[in-house]
């Protein structure tokens, strides 16, 4: 049992309301014993990680809200020499502002980088999941309550409705081993995109087959170009190498390249020619 936050990245349009209302709640407002005020600027207890992906004209922007993960295996807790950081029975991790002596070891310990230092008050600070409100009967933390797309849900992990969402969700950087309580649906997978054209008559080619073969795992990802000759191979894996091949009836098949998904890839215009 315990609280979990589920965020659907596919819904996030980058309105930044969550980032802003977190400041609305915590700048110049003292919520002791949960948290003291954060400074006017420089802290992002919830921060939008904005990623521009691809190259012109195959460009997308993805926005991912990043906040304290309220980890079950939180490294900040043992890192604190003052025992100022603790985990509640509902899963929320808090820093006691009275006990914190400003040593900053928790900032170093947190692999997600979501702890911030308040130089004026000499204390470490982070997201409290607005427990000062939840404990008074509010249903949602401020960020969830301001989300224009209702992309964020706070719930109990035992709730069957939440469980269905958790089945489709994942955590950021599971390899850190911290067991976050913040889950993400539709985290971006790399895309490989392009446009298939016939240069001899300057036409877009619809219905070309594009196959990306994972050179290590052998899995083949297939798609078909649309009326504009465009294709987007999605649901690939980061840091994998793919052989890209294009074919269309009446044209010579083409091995385009080997693409490495350390970033999203725009293969540009791929020209197919008729066999001689």
């Amino acid at each position: 049992m315990g609280k979990v936050l589920v965020i659907d990245v596919a819904e996030c349009v980058g309105c930044y309301c969550c980032q802003i209302v977190c400041k609305d709640e915590h700048v110049e407002n003292d919520w002791s014993p949960y948290a003291k005020p954060q400074p006017d600027t420089g802290h992002f207890w919830l921060k939008i990680d904005e990623k521009e992906r691809g190259t012109i004209p195959k460009v997308k922007v993805t926005y991912i809200p990043i906040l304290c993960m309220h980890c079950d295996n939180a490294p900040c807790i043992p890192a604190c020499p003052q025992n100022a950081i603790f985990k509640r029975s509902d899963g929320v991790v808090l820093i006691n502002p009275e006990k914190c002596d400003g040593c900053k070891l928790c900032l170093d310990a947190c692999p997600y980088g979501v702890i911030y230092f308040n130089t004026e008050l000499n204390i470490a600070q982070k997201c409290t999941l607005c427990t000062h409100l939840l404990d008074k009967g509010w249903k949602e933390p401020r960020c969830v309550g301001a989300c224009q797309r209702e992309a964020m849900i706070l719930g109990e992990e035992d709730d069957p409705k939440i469980k269905t969402l958790l089945d489709k969700a994942e955590v950021l950087h599971p390899e850190y081993g911290t067991k976050p309580r913040v889950y993400y649906m539709n985290l971006p997978k790399p895309f490989i995109a392009g446009t298939i054209v016939d240069p001899s008559n300057r036409e877009c080619l619809e219905g070309a087959t594009i196959i990306a073969t994972d050179l290590v795992e052998g899995v083949k990802h297939k798609t078909v170009s649309d009326e504009f000759g465009d294709f987007w191979l999605k649901d690939l894996k980061w840091m994998h190498r793919y052989l890209i091949e294009v074919s269309k009836e009446g044209y010579a098949p083409k091995k385009v390249c080997i693409a490495y998904t350390d970033k999203d890839i725009n293969l540009g215009t791929i020209q197919l020619t008729k066999p001689i």
Binding site: C12, V13, G14, I56, P57, K58, V59, K60, V61, Y63, F228, D230
Partner: peptide, 15 residues
């Protein structure tokens, strides 16, 4: 430009 609506909603961008 790929404007803010196009960046998340557009199926195609024609610069």
């Amino acid at each position: 430009d790929l404007n803010y609506a196009e960046a998340v909603h557009a199926d195609k961008w024609i610069p």
